[in-house]
Every structure is written in structure tokens, then in C-alpha cells.
Nucleic acid binder design. Sequence first.
DNA 1: CGTGTAAGGAATTCTGACACG
DNA 2: CGTGTAAGGAATTCTGACACG
Lengths: 106, 106
Amino acid sequence: VAKEISYKERKVISIGVVSELTGLSERQIRYYEQKKLLSPERSNKGYRKYSFVDVETLIEIANQREEGVPTGEIKEELEKKYKKGSKLHKKMISGQINAQFGTHKK
Amino acid sequence: VAKEISYKERKVISIGVVSELTGLSERQIRYYEQKKLLSPERSNKGYRKYSFVDVETLIEIANQREEGVPTGEIKEELEKKYKKGSKLHKKMISGQINAQFGTHKK
DNA sequence: CGTGTAAGGAATTCTGACACG
DNA sequence: CGTGTAAGGAATTCTGACACG
């Protein structure tokens, strides 16, 4: 045991569900992938599978796009974030704990 | 903000993916639902959607079944666990952090 | 550039049932 | 009791393309 990744990073969500979760059309989601803003995995039969991290990335993309930011710029912004690894890590943890306790299971 | 639930509890995974994740057949997964061992949600069109918690529950069910434990008993065991809420909570958190740090993103 | 849509095909999921036991 | 399977239908996803601009 030392090989698993967090639920947040597991690629298991279909494009249809991602569309509901983000409010984006499937066309838009596939287009952003084409532009390399995110990289879903593929099932055996070629179906795209996304993680919650992908969903969050898409929500960020949606917000940027609403402000008129072109995909090229959004892509650069996203790439910068990946370099702040360690610092972002702590924020991720507390974020997860908040998600856990900040509420009641509905 | 105070209404979201953890990624672990969001019902977003299709039965096909759950089948791959657990090694169980779709038939078995649907049967355990019929026996009330878990409760997936449904999409608009009636498609079942599971959470990572459901996946873990199913893995536990699979282990119990391998030992010959009947679904009725497994169901009771699962119901007992839901009553140990607060204590399990802390374990859940540390478990998440371990999943996060216990490894490298592959 | 970013996104909608119709097009045709392949794969998914659903339910109810028969089967074995 | 627990699980496999064939059956028919409905909904999903995929790709490449035309459209507007």
C-alpha cells in the first residue's frame, strides 16, 4: 500500500456527468481537451473518464471563458499552477477536510 | 458554502466503472442493491450512479461473500457501522490524507 | 476561435425473465 | 440464495464534418 491516489484524482466520471457537474456542453469539454487544457483518460472502448480535479479545472475554465479569456491564456495559467506543487498540497488537504466537516451529508 | 459533500460521497460513477473497480459483475452489483446493501442514485434517465464510498462498500461485500457470508448478515454488519459515526469520522480524514500523501501521483 | 448540430455507428445500461439449485 | 445469460429497447458516447464568424 503506497500506490493509491486520492479519490479526487481518480478518473472515473463520464463526460455526461461532467457536463451536468460543470454546466458545460460535451462539445465544449471535448474542445478544451483538444486544446490541451485537461487530459481525461480513456476506457477500453474509448470513452472519456474524468476526475474531480478535471471537473474543478473545467469550472475554472468556464469562469475564465465567461470573462472572455482565450483558451491559450487559460492553458498557460493552468500550467503555472502545476509548478506550485508543495504549497498547493497543504491547501488541498484543508480543503478536503472542510469539504468533509463543513457540512452535513445532506 | 456549507452544503457540499466530500468527493468520496458524490454519486457520479457508472455501474460499468464500478464493476471494473470492484471486480464484481454488474449483475452482482444490482443484486446487492436489491438486497439493500447499498443505495446508488439515479440519473434522469434512470442510470445508476455510485460514490467511492459505495465502491468501498462493495469491496467489503465481495470479501464477505468470498467467505460465504450471506447478504443478510453483511447487511446487518454494514448497518452497525453507520452508528459509529463520530469515531469513524477521524479515521476517514486520516485515511484521506494518507491516500493523498502516502504516494506519488503515479 | 469557440461552439452548435445532424449523422451513423458502437458500446452502455435498464428491466424482467428463465435457469440452476 | 446468488449469479449467469439472452432479449429488446432506450440513452450515451465517439468521431469527422458543416456552419457561423
